[in-house]
C-alpha cells in the first residue's frame, strides 16, 4: 500500500503542536490516495507528546534516534529522511523555520521539486495537487506535483488538527545513516521573555505607526497578555524604524499569519501589510481614521483614539476571562 511520510518536530524533547497539523494534513491526503501514514520523530531520546501522533492520524510512528538529534541537525535530519523518502508517495513537512530549511534539502537529495507553504492539498488523477498563496497572499496558485515523492510543506495554523482517530500508532524505528555534518547547530538562544511566534499564535495583536513611539507597544503587550495565548506583531513601518524586532513584522517582506483573531492597532492597512494577514479568521481594526484601508478587510472596527480604546479593551478582555 502506498504510504505518506509526515515529518514531526520536537524541541527540547517535546513535540511541537505543528506536528499534529502535519499528521492531520497527511492523513487527509492519505485517505484520498488510499494510503497509510508514517510519522517520523527525530530526536536524541523520548519525546513528550509522541503518544498523541496515532490519534492525530499516524498509522505508524517511526523513531530516528541519534545523539546529535537533540537540536536540529540539518545534514543528519536530511540524510535520514532522504534514506527512506523514496519509498513514499508524498512527504509532508511544516513550513516552520525547520521545515523551510529541511524540505528543500530532502527534495534535492531525492532529485525532485518541493511545494512550500501550501494551504490546501488534494488529489486529482492520482496526482497530488496543492494550493499556495503567492505574492504574499495577493494571489493563490494551484499546482500539480508530478514528482515521486511529492514533497510539500504546510503553512502553520492552516490545517485543522484531527484527534478522532483514537488509536495508538504502531511503533517502528528508522536507522540513521552515516552523514557528514557540514553545518553544526551550536545552540538555541531563548528570548528574554518566552514569546509566542506570530505565525503560530492563535491571537495576534499588531501595532503600526499610530502607536507614535516604541514604548507605547506596552499597551499591546498588555492586551496580548490579557488574551492569554497571543503574540505581538508589527507593521513594516515600525520595524524599519527600529521600534520592534523584524521577526514580529507582518506583511509581504515579513511574516504571513493566519491566526483565529488578528487585532490591527494604529495600522492604516498598506497593501503589503494586508497581504500578510488577510487569511486571519477574524480581523479587528482600531484606528482613528475612519477611511483607513484596514477597515475594508476588518470584520469589526472601532474608530477612535487607540490610547483610549486599547486599555479599555484590555480591561474588558480581563473581565471576560475572569468570569
Amino acid at each position: 500500500m502506498a504510504a505518506i511520510l509526515a515529518v514531526t518536530e520536537q524541541r527540547g524533547g517535546a513535540l511541537r503542536k505543528v506536528s499534529l497539523e502535519v499528521i492531520s494534513a497527511a492523513r487527509a491526503l492519505a485517505d484520498q490516495l488510499g494510503a497509510s501514514v508514517d510519522a517520523i520523530v527525530l530526536s536524541n531520546g523520548a519525546v513528550d507528546g509522541a503518544g498523541n501522533l496515532g490519534s492525530a492520524g499516524a498509522d505508524q510512528v517511526l523513531a530516528a534516534s541519534h545523539d546529535a538529534f537533540g537540536l536540529y541537525s540539518p545534514d543528519g535530519y536530511a540524510a535520514t529522511i532522504a534514506s527512506i523518502g523514496g519509498n513514499y508517495a508524498a512527504i509532508v513537512f511544516a513550513a516552520s523555520a525547520m521545515g523551510r530549511d529541511l524540505a528543500p534539502r530532502v527534495a534535492a537529495r531525492l532529485g525532485t521539486g518541493c511545494a512550500t507553504d501550501v494551504t490546501g492539498l488534494g488529489v486529482e488523477g492520482g496526482k497530488v495537487t496543492a494550493t499556495r498563496p503567492v505574492y504574499a497572499g495577493k494571489a493563490i496558485q494551484k499546482i500539480t506535483l508530478g514528482g515521486s515523492p511529492a514533497v510539500v510543506s504546510i503553512r502553520p495554523n492552516t490545517f485543522p488538527v484531527s484527534t478522532g482517530a483514537g488509536k495508538a500508532g504502531a511503533a517502528g524505528t528508522v536507522a540513521v545513516p552515516a552523514f557528514a555534518t557540514r553545518v553544526t547547530v551550536k545552540g538555541v538562544k531563548a528570548p528574554e521573555q518566552a514569546a509566542l511566534d506570530v505565525t503560530e499564535a492563535p491571537i495576534v495583536v499588531s501595532g503600526g505607526r499610530g502607536l507614535k513611539e516604541p514604548g507605547n507597544f506596552k499597551l499591546l503587550e498588555d492586551l496580548a497578555a490579557a488574551f492569554g495565548s497571543a503574540a505581538v506583531g508589527a507593521s513594516r513601518a515600525v520595524v524599519d524604524a527600529g521600534w520592534r524586532e523584524h521577526g514580529a513584522q507582518v506583511g509581504q517582506t515579513g511574516k504571513t499569519v493566519a491566526p483565529t483573531l488578528y487585532v490591527a492597532v494604529g495600522i492604516s492597512g498598506a497593501i503589503q501589510h494586508l497581504a500578510g494577514m488577510r487569511t486571519s479568521k477574524v480581523i479587528v481594526a482600531i484606528n482613528k481614521d475612519k477611511d483607513a484601508p484596514i477597515f475594508k478587510v476588518a470584520d469589526y472596527g472601532i474608530v477612535g483614539d487607540l490610547f483610549e480604546v486599547v486599555p479599555r479593551l484590555t480591561d474588558e478582555v480581563k473581565k471576560l476571562r475572569a468570569e
Binding site: 495537487t129 493563490i140 494551484k142 480581523i283 478587510v297
Partner: peptide, 16 residues
C-alpha cells in the same frame, strides 16, 4: 515536477 494549473485572486474579504 511542478506544474501551475491556475492562478487566481483570493476571495475578497467582506468589509465588516
Amino acid at each position: 515536477s511542478i506544474t501551475v494549473t491556475s492562478l487566481a485572486l483570493p476571495p475578497e474579504r467582506q468589509a465588516g
